[in-house]
Design a protein around this nucleic acid. Structure first.
Lengths: 163, 163
DNA sequence: TAATTTTAGTTTCATATGTAACTATTTCAA
DNA sequence: TTGAAATAGTTACATATGAAACTAAAATTA
């Protein structure tokens, strides 16, 4: 009954990496990220964390660093370093919040806004090149499936760290 | 016409990270990988590259290092280091190929086989916990979608590096 | 068969990343 | 108030990673 199957079950003591979901996700994500990272580096001298910070500032800014952490789902250290670099590059400006001097308020500079305007269509381009492999309907169902998996994965992750 | 949509299009100059496919993949993959990496580290003292090498040796071994690279889609440096560590841990044995003394022949030791036997069900468990978010049908369609995306992503990546 | 090129794998180096420790400031409680 | 606890963000450290240079052996070619 299973013999014509494209993915026959391996015996319990065997595992084929290519059919292992966490592995599939990792390979796909790395392939995509590496391609994009190279492009951003070559065109703008930005890393992915740096670009992500710019994306959230462009869309939701001004933000504090911790709001940027929430929006990007990145570590605060990663964000701190990305921000430091973006300030050097004069893409971002940091002011101290006068109401709470622990906080800084981050926003794109005029240059940052120009860079952001250039990158967004490139980012969208990457996405649509990739999504060109799918029909509209497939794309929607992928979205739904990934959302379900992310919810489940986050649950599992938070259980682990509590247990 | 678009106004009731769950994912309304942002203006061209804006991008919401949460709806950006490369970002979704990266977050999901990291969430999953980190959970699994912690478990393998805590239970067996193995990293993900180390475990991947064991998985392919358990399924397809003995292999040379470059065959292990192909099977895991990992860099040869990563594989070399994983193998060095696995030899230290006496999970893997390395013999020089008598027919080609540049090559080494890698296989699980008796201990490696035991470890492999323990890990495989745990790996499968992780996968099914995650896939529990999906029906059988959804899981199959996810497989198909990821395969299409991987094919496309690989194409794009190879274009880039040639161009 | 000697010289050159290719291949397998390792080591080096520069960079990225996260945890933990730290500094500065604010909030809370006695 | 003032001293303890919490919060925002940075720095230090230890580890991971990949590109490029390297070593050793085999294949090619002249």
């Amino acid at each position: 009954m299973d013999s014509g199957n494209k993915h026959p079950k391996e015996p319990d003591s065997q595992l084929v990496l290519e059919q292992f979901l966490p592995y599939q996700l990792s390979i796909l994500s790395n392939t995509v990220s590496n391609t994009i990272a190279r492009e951003y580096r070559d065109l703008f001298g930005l890393s992915i964390p740096e670009w992500r910070v710019m994306a959230v500032l462009g869309r939701f800014g001004p933000l504090t660093a911790s709001e940027a952490c929430d929006r990007t789902a990145m570590d605060k250290v990663t964000v701190s370093r990305a921000v430091a670099r973006l300030i050097e590059l004069k893409q971002v400006r940091r002011d101290t919040d006068p109401n709470d001097r622990r906080r800084s308020i981050l926003k794109l500079t005029a240059r940052g806004v120009r860079t952001h305007r250039q990158i967004v269509p490139i980012a969208r381009g990457h996405e649509s090149e990739l999504a060109a492999a799918l029909t509209q309907k497939e794309r929607r169902s992928l979205d739904a499936l990934l959302a379900k998996l992310q919810r489940r994965a986050s649950e599992i992750a938070s259980q682990e760290s509590t247990a």
